[in-house]
Design a protein around this nucleic acid. Structure first.
Lengths: 301, 301
DNA sequence: CGATACGCATAGGTAAAGCCTATCGAGATC
DNA sequence: GATCTCGATAGGCTTTACCTATGCGTATCG
């Protein structure tokens, strides 16, 4: 049984005329006759009663017609569905990202991506790098924006460096300005506002202080990114945040660079090594990589 | 898109392995690879992510799989349905017959037919020849047993003579036996029990009497066949019925042949000339024609 | 009543498609 | 690093789907 044979069959059933059916499917009449005959032979039953000028479906033909129509319709649906996916008119990307990236980097990029491919659904999971890596490996995410180095490196994941991002110190505009540029050691006696456990920024900042030989002290700790900025704004202390986050924090926050060598973190795109990400995820990856050329506050890798 | 390509595709999707899929569909591995590739090219999307030893469906493949399965299932269904019809394991015959034939001829033949083809549904319409012819032309019947000559002959109907059936006189066993064999003229002064209008037997009997120059008189008229036999049994009069009906009427009815040349009627099978009857109807026709060889009370044509 | 037109089936030739065996090449395994 | 596995590629052959030309039965028309 062949799709064409079913197509020819439906054409004859609908026109009740071999010659006109042949025209309709753009084939010569003998070809159509032959295919119908082949189909009849394969099925072991006549499909049409060929009375001169009055072609009719036999009972076998009646039985076949609805199924043939459905098969052809399904075929068309399959073709369209696959092509919609391929042409990014439809689809889904499950993207993981750390909270600071969701705030800093993602909004503009996702806006660009969505304008390019309005049919693609964007599912964002906001978590620490550790969780993101696990979700990637589980197949629950297609792509993740993580901070390098990965907490649990694995050959099962491929990472592509996206950009290096400077960290800066933010403080309340109402408070006295810190000496600039701020050195890490200046933070020894400064009260800090610190993110909850799980934030890469927390680990990074604490590690930097310890490298200078002191343990940072926190006035408040445990909040999410926005809460931390709020606490800083209220004068509860300083915080170390990515430049990109600080850039959009508003006028009532003072942004102070760190003295050289400063702190920076490396943002990378990660995906499973064993399977190619879906078409839409590859496209998002492309858009992300393209966007770094015009990103403020970060350094292209 | 080809059925085989979908079949190959599903095989690879299920085995996650090109070589094993090729074995499963009984084709060489390169052929299968080529067909998958052709399918991917036609659809414009990769269907599998070919990581060594870990073949996975892409999102396009995921989208295609359920449709491919459904298409293949429908194909199988179509094949089975048509073959069941062709092999008479399923189907329907809409058979029309006159009341006397329903009583006399049909039960045994239908029993034989049903034993041969238990899956075929039998729909019987019991009417006079006139109505049967109309229903045939309407396409509401596949086949009809009618009495020749047809009340409304038409080139649109094809008739095949089935058998000639003798008519006999029945009377109550409790009443004095009529002189035998009965001549038509003997009925002149005999009270008859007569069927309702529409029965071919009525027209036939009345016509025979008129040919002999008299109008028959009825003690009761208007009943169906069984009612008429009941009236005869009760001694209300004689009736002229087909030998086949009389043969199964029971002991309390006396059956008397008519004197030569007697009366007989011709039973024929009729169907539309323009369309071939369904397979099951042709088979019933065959069984009917075969049955006349062993029919009692009738003469093979 | 013969000629014509219509419409499906058949015949024969051609081009494409599908399948095969043999081989390649890349990644995994020991 | 040799071997193995497994999918991709190459080249040749067979099948098949298509075409044009023609046949044949039936309805129509002068």
């Amino acid at each position: 049984m062949q799709f064409q044979q079913l197509l020819y069959f439906v054409a004859v059933a609908e026109t009740r005329h071999f010659t006109r059916a042949a025209e309709r499917v753009h084939v010569s009449q003998p070809s159509l006759s032959q295919q119908i005959k082949a189909l009849e032979q394969e099925l072991g039953a006549e499909l049409f009663s060929r009375a001169r000028g009055n072609i009719t479906l036999t009972d076998a033909g009646e039985a076949l017609l609805p199924l043939a129509r459905r098969i052809l319709a399904d075929t068309e649906t399959a073709r369209l569905e696959v092509q919609e996916l391929a042409q990014l008119r439809r689809g889904r990307v499950r993207l993981g990202a750390t909270p600071s990236l969701c705030t800093g980097l993602l909004p503009d990029v996702l806006r660009v991506f969505h304008d390019l491919h309005p049919g693609i659904e964007l599912l964002i999971e906001e978590s620490g790098s550790h969780d993101l890596v696990r979700e990637l490996a589980r197949g629950a995410l297609d792509l993740a924006l993580v901070v390098l180095p990965l907490p649990t490196p694995s050959p099962a994941l491929t990472t592509v460096e996206l950009l290096r991002e400077d960290l800066v110190v933010v403080s309340a505009a109402s408070e006295p300005a810190p000496r600039r540029p701020v050195r890490i050691t200046d933070l020894r006696d400064q009260p800090l506002v610190m993110f909850r456990h799980g934030y890469d920024l927390r680990e990074l900042t604490v590690a930097a202080c310890r490298a200078e030989g002191f343990e940072p002290s926190f006035t408040v700790e445990g909040g999410e990114l926005d809460a931390v900025l709020g606490f800083v704004r209220a004068g509860l202390g300083l915080a170390v945040v990515p430049a990109m986050v600080a850039a959009r924090a508003g006028r009532d926050l003072r942004v102070t660079a760190l003295a050289r060598p400063g702190l920076r973190r490396t943002i990378a795109l990660a995906h499973r090594s064993d399977v190619a990400p879906p078409r839409a995820a590859r496209e998002l990856q492309r858009v992300l990589l393209a966007s770094r050329k015009v990103r403020p506050g970060g350094t292209s890798v």
